[in-house]
Simulated assay, not measured.
Amino acid sequence: MSSGDITSYGRFEIAARAITDTLRSQNASKSLLSPKVLIICGSGLGGIAKILHGETVKIPYANIPGFKESTVSGHEGCLLFGKIGANDVPVVCMVGRLHYYEGYDFADATFPIRVVAVLGVRLLIATNACGGVNETYKPGDLMVINDHINLPGLAGNHPLRGPNFDEMGPRFPAMSDAYDFDLRLKFFNAVKKLGIERSIHEGIYTYCCGPSFETRAECRLIRSFGGDTVGMSTVPEILVARHCSMRCFGLSLVTNNVLSDPPPSAREASARGWTAEQVGNQSAGRTSHAEVLKEGQAASEDVNVIMKAFINELTDNT
């Protein structure tokens, strides 16, 4: 018997069976019953689902045993099955992800990853909206993730904490190769072939739990650690996907530049006899969720074109 909780493991099988039954009840083709790729559509990037063609089947999270419901604006909360590209690559999209900050624990937030692993998915594409910590990054830029910093994990808040599911992966999975090099190369080759002019970087994504955006001091700390971007998702999903032996690719859309300069000193202002009006508006430049969604919409066309070309190259031998 596994050292993991067999009852909990059975939850993944129950959910996977419910999904399969729903697909069959809607006369889905054989390829949709065996999707090759899971695509997680991040904030403002739900439009990726629009590149699916032909037959599609939508299953709301509420209809899947064990799935929690997405509560964030811009996250529909469903699995969408379909095909992408001339090669008809079968995929399943998470149109809206689940977050720790919504009040779900990591097991709930990453539950869909384990369920699609039971369905046979072996490749994860995770997208997100993020803040640009690297001072050369601008809003609207994209960043291919080649590594991450898991700040909650360093403090012991880790999605693999607890009994291990030996049926799915090892107790101590390596993460030095979490972001697959061959997939990153295929992505950049697709971009080059398409002639996309949008700036696309490659760098390190830093995970913070949220839901508050980072303070100025926290942004300086992240920059000193080597983080290029910061966000509130993706890393828990990558950790669980790698535990399930999935190959992983991550793409971040920079929606804003973080504020990292120290705030003005009230002590100095008092000594100089300055008023708050003379010091200036301290709310200027701060981040909002509306800004995140706006940048996502502006970048969606390029992202969709690139993703279609990239995913079309993911053959059975990939």
Rank of each mutant, 00 (worst) to 15 (best):
T56M: 05
F187D: 08
S31L: 05
I51P: 04
E214L: 09
G280M: 08
L251K: 08
V235S: 11
V279S: 02
C244D: 03
P35V: 00
I204W: 06
D105F: 08
G74T: 13
I39E: 01
Q278F: 04
L151W: 12
G77F: 09
P211K: 01
N134W: 15
S25V: 05
I113K: 07
N304F: 03
L154Y: 15
A284N: 12
F172P: 03
T110N: 03
E237F: 04
L259R: 09
E237H: 11
A217W: 04
T315W: 10
C41F: 03
G85T: 15
E277N: 04
L251G: 06
M1P: 05
V303L: 14
K68P: 05
G195M: 13
P236R: 06
C219I: 14
N134L: 05
R97K: 09
H148D: 12
A117F: 13
E135H: 14
A15F: 07
V258N: 06
G250M: 03
I113F: 11
N317S: 00
L253T: 11
R114T: 08
I311E: 09
E313V: 02
E237A: 10
I200A: 13
S3F: 14
D108A: 07
R216L: 08
K308Y: 05
G4I: 09
V72G: 02
E291P: 00
E301M: 07
A190G: 03
A49C: 04
D228L: 07
P152C: 01
M94A: 11
G54L: 00
D302Q: 07
E69P: 01
A276S: 04
P90G: 04
M168I: 13
A299T: 12
T275M: 03
I200R: 14
T22A: 15
D88N: 10
A49I: 04
A86L: 15
E197G: 10
P35A: 01
R223K: 15
G132T: 13
A271P: 01
I238L: 03
I149H: 14
C248G: 02
C209H: 02
V118P: 00
L314E: 01
F187I: 12
G96F: 07
F81K: 03
A269Q: 12
G96Y: 08
V95M: 03
G162Q: 12
V254W: 05
F111S: 12
D316R: 05
R272K: 07
T275W: 06
D316P: 00
E202L: 08
T229P: 00
R223P: 11
L119F: 12
P159T: 15
L23Y: 10
R216P: 06
F111Y: 14
G82E: 04
A309R: 14
N146A: 03
G44C: 05
R216G: 03
A266Q: 15
L123K: 14
T275A: 03
T234Y: 00
V305A: 13
G203S: 06
T206L: 05
C41H: 09
Y100A: 09
H75S: 10
I113E: 11
T255A: 07
T275H: 02
I204Q: 00
S70R: 12
D108L: 01
E202T: 11
G226S: 07
H201D: 08
S245L: 09
H201A: 10
N257F: 02
L52T: 13
A241H: 12
R223F: 15
H53V: 03
V116M: 07
P159Y: 13
T215M: 06
A241L: 12
A86F: 15
N146V: 08
I145Q: 15
